[in-house]
Design a protein around this nucleic acid. Structure first.
Length: 322
RNA sequence: GCCUUGGUAGCUCAGUCGGUAGAGCAGUAGACUGAAAAUCUACGUGUCGGUGGUUCGAUUCCGCCCCAAGGCA
């Protein structure tokens, strides 16, 4: 079977991914698939810099607004939903374009991760968190993990509660250490072309600061207020989004607006840094210097070649496998 | 003009009863397999405002100067 070609635009937040993808859409038969862990939520538009009606009118967008803001969502669900969409777009003779900055989502798609094989269980997590809160709790959990899954324990720092607990959870639910499921599932059925947006750090940070100010001017505070009014609470996954969680203390009268804005800027910078670390480690990314005026042209060149090659591959009468 | 209190890492500050100094934040690097905009790890040399003096030795004590904030005139 031939692999569906998928182009992806990745990079840190505020580095111009959306604009670039719109430019690509003008030249190629592209449909955009969101690869962002917050833009999937309904009602979170300003703070996630979600593509608006104009963009969506020009190009078909998928995977936006697919989850209610009170619901939780996981990488696994993302991959399960996105894969058929990518295939469908490909089968209609178009080029799926993944756009977003969530590295784990990309990895799940490119490498077909087993992801532990079981969904998270709130009960198990609550129970393990209770242990974590005890004196020396993190070390107790880590010792438990060493017992159940020495390989994972070796890789994880005791303070990385999130992962220690997940590893224990998987072991408890499946009887199999998560470390033994770490092998990628193999063939993903897709053939990826990766474009990365890069620029000097100082320039990126300046863009981030400016963007946060713009979001505030567009009514971010109102957006958050509205979500809370609709019953979204601080423990909802959606409220972990940067630009959202920082407003809660303000709305409770416990913090000043200016401080919230500064915190949003700082958290966004930290986030961008983490994204950069993640994407730097991804193989075969075609990086674009977004400060260069010809960045879009070079992206188009790459995307065009990718698209032509993919079609050449699909066209021959006898597909010769690889 | 006088008095007081400050001037130590990019920022906020601690400290050295005289042996050239350390936290938080920022920043940098990294990890990441069903919460990932999450979670976690590592990294701290700077004319201790300037200049004279005392001293074996001063960022620390003393004098003078500069700057800032407050007070008195």
């Amino acid at each position: 079977m031939t692999q569906t070609p998928v182009l992806a635009v990745l990079g840190p937040t505020a580095a111009g991914k959306s604009a670039l993808s719109m430019a690509l859409a003008k030249a190629l038969p592209v449909e955009i698939v969101c690869m962002d862990s917050m833009q999937i939520y309904q009602g979170m538009d300003i703070g996630t810099a979600k593509p608006g009606p104009e963009e969506r009118l020009q190009v078909a967008h998928h995977m936006l607004d697919v989850v209610g803001p009170k619901e939780s969502f996981s990488v696994s669900q993302y991959a399960d939903m996105a894969r058929p969409i990518l295939e469908d777009i490909g089968s209609r003779g178009k080029l799926p374009l993944l756009v977003g900055g969530t590295g784990l989502y990309l990895k799940a798609l490119t490498q077909g991760l087993p992801l532990g094989g079981v969904a998270g269980s709130q009960e198990v997590r609550d129970r393990l968190h209770a242990i974590a809160r005890q004196e020396g709790g993190p070390l107790i959990l880590h010792a438990m993990l060493r017992e159940a899954d020495p390989a994972s324990a070796q890789k994880l720092h005791p303070n990385d509660l999130r992962r220690v607990i997940r590893a224990l959870e998987v072991y408890e639910a499946t009887g199999k250490p998560i470390s033994r499921q770490d092998e990628p599932a193999g063939e993903s059925g897709f053939r990826f072309g990766l474009l990365g947006t890069a620029m000097r750090r100082e320039v990126l940070y300046e863009r981030i600061n400016r963007r946060v100010e713009e979001m505030a001017a567009q009514g971010l505070e109102e957006e958050v207020r509205g979500l809370l009014a609709r019953g979204v609470t601080r423990d909802c996954q959606s409220m972990q989004g940067i630009g959202y969680k920082e407003w809660i203390p303000v709305l409770e009268g416990a913090a000043a607006r200016a401080d919230a804005l500064e915190r949003i800027k700082r958290n966004t910078r930290h986030y961008a840094k983490r994204q950069l670390t993640w994407f730097k480690a991804v193989q075969d990314v075609h990086w674009l210097d977004m400060e260069q005026p010809q960045a879009a042209a070079r992206a188009l060149e790459f995307a065009g070649e990718f698209w032509v090659a993919a079609q050449g591959e699909a066209a021959p009468p006898q597909g010769k496998g690889t």
